[in-house]
Design a protein around this nucleic acid. Structure first.
Lengths: 145, 145
DNA sequence: CGTGTAAGGAATTCTGACACG
DNA sequence: CGTGTAAGGAATTCTGACACG
């Protein structure tokens, strides 16, 4: 068994993970001029360090832009899309927290790679493991080691 | 209950998520000249599209660079660090698969946000839910809806 | 309102060479 | 081997203006 490196878990919440405007535009399919306009209206934020004049975007913002874009594509106005995306943000944060808090350790079960997801409620001696068997993920309850 | 948008899950495996060399250097703490050298030795790959001469790096490569960097910091030679990182890659892919395959739906349990992680092995009528209660994640076994 | 474009300057990245060791 | 730097050119991003609607 080995610990999941802090760096790996951290990647998902790391404020250091940031993209330039070209990369964000590419990932999300939102144009650079849209991104600049949205920022001018305070719908999204970019990071500007004192050393650089160029925009950087955090992983959090990548998610926000994604959601806004999706609502736009569904036919909402920009302001409506922003509002709807706001609510989705809570869920993104939640997902990230599950990953960061719950992917406790990499291990093996019967020779298969597995992630220890920690104890099941009310059974502190039994943990849930996600196990990779034949390219399928299976959830199994096993004694905590 | 709402489906976890494909885009959100896809973000983690998306080939479109790519960083420039400056951003990768910033996230990982590895210098640009190191990244170029590692690529010249085929330890890592970058994406070069026909339109651009500049390097782009995938999320997969971000993870690889992270691991190599960590082993370097622990005192391994570059070639040893590359070999050790190679093995870790399997685990990264596995973690990603768990997230993509198992974060089935966003829902609520007793008014708390929750993620349906799917059935527990051998109990196809009972699913494991990750529930956010007081900033803590709890795993609970509940009837699948 | 929301997005695109042309323009000129600023910041970033490119390659190949060379230094150090 | 593995990394850094100075150099000049190429690609990217910047802002403010203007167009369209």
């Amino acid at each position: 068994m080995e610990q999941i490196p802090e760096e790996l878990k951290g990647l998902l919440g790391k404020p250091e993970l940031q993209l330039g405007i070209g990369d964000l535009a590419h990932v999300t399919g939102v144009s650079q001029s849209q991104l600049r306009y949205w920022e001018s209206k305070n719908y999204i934020q970019s990071i500007k360090t004192s050393e650089s004049k160029n925009r950087k975007y955090s992983l959090k913002t990548i998610g926000e832009v994604h959601f806004i874009k999706n609502f736009l594509d569904e036919g909402f106005t920009l302001t409506a899309a922003v509002k709807k995306a706001e609510k989705r943000k809570e869920f993104i944060n939640f997902m990230r927290k599950v990953i960061i808090d719950r992917f406790e350790a990499l291990t093996e079960v019967d020779g298969h790679p597995a992630i220890d997801l920690g104890p099941l409620e009310g059974q502190s001696d039994q943990n849930i493991f996600a196990i990779l068997i034949d390219q399928e993920i299976i959830l199994r309850l096993l004694p905590a080691k």
